[in-house]
Design a protein around this nucleic acid. Structure first.
Length: 564
RNA sequence: GGGCUCGUGGCUUAGCCUGGAUAGAGCGCCGGGCUUCUAACCCGGAUGUCGAGGGUUCAAAUCCCUCCGGGCCCGCCA
């Protein structure tokens, strides 16, 4: 709705500009607290036409012609700004549109296949609070892009050729695997113990090297051991992701590119490049012309491949199956991903769009699975759930155990996801337990609560025999009502912008603002106890709010509860 | 040492790419509101040299430069 309104403003303003004798390639249209959409184009025109912005604005305003039944109600010249206000028709149609489109309201019609890779944590232990920043950003982005119309496939790239997995395999041969524990945690125990031993007793190091070598050549027995180790860790990782409402469409093993010979073909191609140099038996690419000082080794002197070489192949493979590739990566991958992109560019291959997120650290420093210094996602989820449980118990002492457990679960998942996604990815954060379990702040529970309230009104109205089968949206004239409808109408704009700029936090902000608008409506505008002539229309607005609240929460991967 | 990045009220942060109307919000703090659809709510108030300095511009939190502080990276690891 908003996008169509903005388009109308755009064409009306273009025409007014032309009629007033001005020419501008950028209309400088923007949302504004002073109007529904505002243009500061007069500033840009001022030097060119040697008039004050105010004069220009007035001249443009005089030529603004608004057609009947337009989404634009009126335009105003406010000093140097030209402000546009939406019409009643716009509000009424927004309500009808939501009722019609329901769970699809806000969806856009972009086309194309997107492969989005996220999480891709090494299968050497459980996901920790840094990994799930990747997962939540990636999953939310995938949901946003789906709503924007793209055909999205999510992939988890399993790095099974790295030394750390060989250490896990070696560890499994030498240490006890605690079958009583969740599998990824038991793998971490083995991994941590193995690392410690490898540091203390250097003589075991060649054993790990031998395992890696055997895996590289595809020894059947070693393959089985790797598969067992990785499947075990991944089972636990997937359980955690599943709990957070995150699922991957495909799990791609790094080794497959070695097995098919694609990695060798890739190395041969890169070797032929002018930028590639041969030094001390190894091949490396000089990326100075791409602005990167560091050369990139693509083949070791023993002839084997490296992580980046395989990643190059992985991206080439992905590109054959989609129109866009998006990678969600931690800040430690900044250099390596720009090197990867540079090589792909030189080879004439498609480059991925990379979303980098900064680190989550502990107050005492950075996390490390290898050293056993981390807070697992499972632990975080459990602690937050405990806090949520005590909150429900306090607030809903009348309810049974099953209800409290259920609410505590979806509130805690929502709170964790929301807390991660609300902060823009480029911000480095320090984890704080007190903050993590705090439910006073306006986060996911605030939005979920607004949704539950809407459901409650709808349920009570039904009991009272109030329906919205027939209503006139035109009588929704209270400030809180029009503000709420306008907020509903910009959902598609939030999706559009978030998809365009790959900024999932925009949806977190939108959802909170929508809940805010709904709560204000709730406080000031009665529905069930309203005069009969207002009941149906207001109930319809509650239903619309419920739908868009649910759509926003769904985009954030958070449960929209009927009661809490 | 070099590169990248962040620095906004006591705390957490939006806005920065694409410069424009009094820098928006939450927590905390102060004050008010449950005989009314779930108070995990609502209303009001105090709190900001937008890290510092310079520059560009009619206009800078936003662009450029320098400096300071935090983070990340700089391996024939991943």
């Amino acid at each position: 709705m908003f996008l169509k309104f903005k388009d109308e403003v755009s064409s009306v303003l273009t025409k007014a500009l032309k009629d007033a004798g001005f020419e501008a390639d950028d209309l400088a249209l923007d949302e504004s607290p002073h109007a529904d959409v505002s243009s500061s184009v007069a500033f840009r025109l001022a030097p060119k036409y040697k008039k004050s912005p105010k004069q220009i604005c007035e001249a443009i305003h005089m030529h603004v012609k608004i057609l009947p039944d337009s989404y634009i109600d009126r335009a105003e010249a406010a000093g140097p700004y030209i402000n546009f206000f939406s019409s009643r028709a716009y509000l009424n149609e927004t309500v009808l549109r939501v009722m019609l489109d329901r769970e699809n309201f806000g969806n856009l019609n972009n086309t194309g296949k997107v492969i989005l890779e996220h999480t891709s944590a090494n299968p050497d232990g459980p996901l920790h609070i840094g990994h799930i920043r990747n997962s939540v950003i990636g999953d939310t982005l995938a949901r946003i892009l789906k709503r924007a119309g793209y055909d999205v496939e999510t992939q988890y790239y399993i790095n099974d050729m790295g030394r750390q997995i060989a250490v896990v395999v070696w560890g499994l041969m030498n240490f006890k695997f605690d079958a009583a524990k969740k599998k990824d945690h038991a793998i971490a125990d083995v991994y941590i113990a193995a690392n410690k031993t490898l540091v203390d007793e250097k003589e075991h190091s060649p054993e790990v090297d031998a395992i890696m070598k055997q895996y590289e050549v595809g020894d059947a027995d070693t393959n089985r051991k790797f598969k067992d180790a990785i499947d075990t860790a991944m089972e636990g990782i997937e359980q955690t992701l599943d709990r957070m409402n995150i699922h991957h469409d495909k799990f791609v093993w790094e080794s497959q590119f070695v097995r098919t010979g694609e990695v060798n073909r890739m190395m041969d191609r890169v070797k032929k490049l002018d930028n590639t140099i041969f030094k001390d038996g190894a091949f490396m690419v000089d990326l100075k012309e791409a602005g990167i000082e560091k050369t990139l080794v693509i083949q070791r002197s023993d002839g084997t491949s490296l992580y980046t070489t395989r990643d190059l192949t992985y991206h080439e493979w992905k590109a054959t199956q989609c129109d866009r590739m998006i990678d969600i990566l931690g800040a430690d991958h900044k250099l390596i991903s720009s090197q990867l992109k540079a090589v792909l560019r030189i080879l004439g291959l498609q480059e991925p769009e990379v979303v980098i997120f900064e680190f989550v650290s502990l107050p005492e420093g950075s996390m490390s699975t290898r050293r056993g210094v981390f807070i697992s996602a499972d632990e975080l989820l459990d602690e937050v759930k405990k806090a949520a449980y005590s909150e429900v118990s306090k607030k809903r002492p009348d309810t049974d155990e099953e209800f409290k457990q259920k609410v505590a679960e979806f509130v805690s998942i929502g709170a964790v996801r929301y807390d991660i996604v609300r902060v823009s990815p480029e911000k480095a954060t320090t984890f704080d337990w007190a903050e993590a379990v705090d439910f006073e702040k306006q986060g996911a529970p605030f939005i979920q609560y607004a949704h539950a309230r809407a459901c409650s009104i709808i349920k009570n109205a039904k009991d009272e025999g109030i329906t919205f089968e027939e209503f006139d949206a035109g009588i929704l004239l209270e400030d809180q009502e029009t503000a709420l409808i306008k907020k509903l109408s910009v959902f598609e704009n939030a999706i559009d912008k978030a998809a365009r700029e790959l900024k999932p936090n925009l949806i977190a902000i939108y959802a909170r603002e929508l809940a805010d608008a709904f709560n204000q409506f709730y406080r000031y505008v009665p529905v069930i106890s309203a005069e009969p002539e207002f009941q149906a229309a207001r109930l319809a607005l509650v239903e619309c709010s419920r739908i868009v609240l649910a759509n926003s929460l769904d985009t954030l991967g958070i449960v929209a509860p009927e009661s809490m």
